[in-house]
Structure formats: C-alpha cells, structure tokens
C-alpha cells in the first residue's frame, strides 16, 4: 500500500500540491486527469522522490519512508516509474533493455519473453532501439516497467503514440496486473480509455486531488443521468430553461449542452424528448456524464 501524507510542494509563491493525503491500495488502478502543468508529473516525481516535497511523507507499506538513501533504494525496489522513450540507449537492443530492467529489479526472467509475446514485439525486439518508431519505443518503455514487476507502477502518458489496437492491448495487460495485485497510477489524456479500467479517477485542480465521484455523486453508477444535446442555440436554450425551470442546464465550451436529469422521472424525460424533437434538435442522446464532459466542465469553463 502506498500512502501520501500531507504532501505540499511549492515553487516560489505557487502551491503546486496542497497538502495531498491519500492512500492507494493493492489491486487498484488510479487515473490522474488534469491539463498540462497542473502538477501530475510533480506528484509522480514526489512519489519517486526525484523531487523533495516542502512538507509531507510518502509511505510504502505502512513503514518505509524516504528518510535515508538506504530507504530510497528499498522504496524504489517496490515503486517504479515508466522511463521516457527519449532516454533509451540507441545502441542497445530492446531485449537488452528488458534484460537490464529484469536484472536491476531481480524479477522473474520469464517475464521478459512473456511480455515480448504479449505486446507483439517479437519481430523487432532484437534490433537496436535507435531504429525504432515512436510507438515501438513507447511499447518498449511499457514492457520495461512490466518486466521490473514492482508493486507500485507509475505511468505518465503511457498511451502516447500508440494506435488503437495497442491501446487496447496495453489496457488488457493493465487489467491483468491489477488482478495480480499491483497498484498502478496512470496519468493519461485518453479519457474514454481511462474510464474503462480505472477504479478511481482523480482530477487535479489547484493543487488538490478530487475524486470524480465526489465532484459528481453517482458518476460511476450505471444510470441515465444526462441528456446531451448538440447545437442548442442560445434562443432555444432560453426558451427551454423557462419551460423546464427545475432542471440544471449547462453548455460546455465544446458546444455540447448537458441537461441534468438524474433526479427526474420518466415523464419529464418524455416531455424533454418531445420538446427537443419539436425544435428539430435531433442530435441528442440519453446516457451518463462522461469523463470528457467532466473534463470540459472542470477545466474548460471560462
């Protein structure tokens, strides 16, 4: 288990992380969502101790803290971060990179072959990484971390540069690792993909971690909560708001209008539908709030 206790990071006057306290459990995938420059990487760097927080502790398995160099080594034995693809050794083959990670973490050598097969890297893994494409390098970096087989894995933008097939492939491996009891913390901008496998998703805003379920109660429930309408013009919207005065209506910067119907009965839903059709606004759907919507609401609202 990884615990963060009152982590605070300050650059000058700017508080990047505000007293973050949180626990990550084994067998859990955590999603971190935030625009660039809001402190995701800072948080990961604090967890790895690449950056010392102004205040607060990182605690692994209730006891280990970054209190000495020896402890740092012990924590790194259990916590790893995915390498940057620009940091690969161009003159060394992919397979040797995997061997390096296996040797450094002293993990099961069998993992190397397994991971190569799982990620479909057989055809090129023996070539020098200098010849790899962006996607190949990204897969190798991911494979390296899988081979290190640490208890906690931090992944920053793991899906960068991957095609949909490989995104799916990696998602499967993540789920498998979760089943093995790993704690995986992922920062990603592929929000729909993240929704698929993440157990908890946090938004980072003004230096704080906000669980989406707390931002929008019932976000993860399987229930129709929202009507999403495209191209709702301003005049129509005004009329609509007058007619259904009890409803919470919101237009996102992306152009979508969201009508909150989570507390409404089927009758109201029916009349909303009728109204929309009457106004010839046929591009609408019933469903739940997506992460994309939420992202738009949280970060793109003026």
């Amino acid at each position: 288990m990884l615990e963060l206790k009152k982590i605070r990071v300050q650059f000058g006057d700017k508080q990047v992380l505000k007293d973050i306290s949180i626990k990550f459990q084994p067998g859990e995938i955590i999603g971190l969502v935030a625009p660039n420059g809001t402190g995701k990487s800072t948080l990961m760097n604090v967890i790895m101790n690449y950056l010392s927080p102004n205040q607060g502790q990182v605690i692994l398995n209730h006891e280990l803290q970054y209190s000495s160099k020896a402890n740092e080594v012990k924590i790194h034995q259990g916590v790893s971060m995915m390498p940057d693809q620009s940091d690969l050794y161009n003159h060394v083959s992919g397979k040797n990179h995997l061997k390096i990670y296996q040797a450094m973490w002293n993990s099961n050598p069998k993992l190397i072959e397994d991971t190569i097969v799982q990620l479909g890297m057989e055809s090129y893994v023996k070539k020098k990484t200098g010849t790899y494409s962006l996607g190949m390098r990204q897969r190798l970096c991911f494979a390296m971390q899988i081979v290190s087989d640490t208890q906690v894995m931090l992944m920053d933008e793991v899906m960068n540069g991957l095609d949909p097939t490989h995104v799916e492939l990696i998602s499967q491996i993540l789920l498998q690792k979760k089943a093995e009891g790993k704690t995986i913390i992922i920062a990603s901008h592929l929000l729909e993909n993240l929704e698929q496998y993440a157990d908890r998703i946090f938004f980072m805003k003004t230096g704080e971690l906000k669980l989406v379920d707390e931002l929008v109660p019932g976000f993860t429930d399987n229930k129709v909560t929202t009507v999403r309408v495209s191209n709702f013009s301003q005049e129509h919207l005004e009329v609509f708001k007058k007619q259904f005065s009890g409803l919470h209506v919101q237009t996102l910067p992306s152009g979508k209008t969201l009508i909150d119907v989570s507390k409404q009965d089927t009758e109201t839903l029916g009349s909303i539908t009728q109204y929309l059709i009457a106004q010839q606004l046929t591009d609408f759907s019933f469903g739940k709030l997506t992460l994309n919507d939420l992202y738009s609401m949280e970060y793109q609202q003026k």
Partner: peptide
C-alpha cells in the same frame, strides 16, 4: 544525463 528517467528509478543508491 540523457538516460535519467531510467537511471533515477533504479533500486540502487546513486553512489
């Protein structure tokens, strides 16, 4: 310096 993200994470003291 060009491979920091690999080296920094190794579970071995920097010295």
């Amino acid at each position: 310096f060009r491979h920091t993200s690999l080296i920094k994470g190794y579970p071995i003291a920097f010295t």
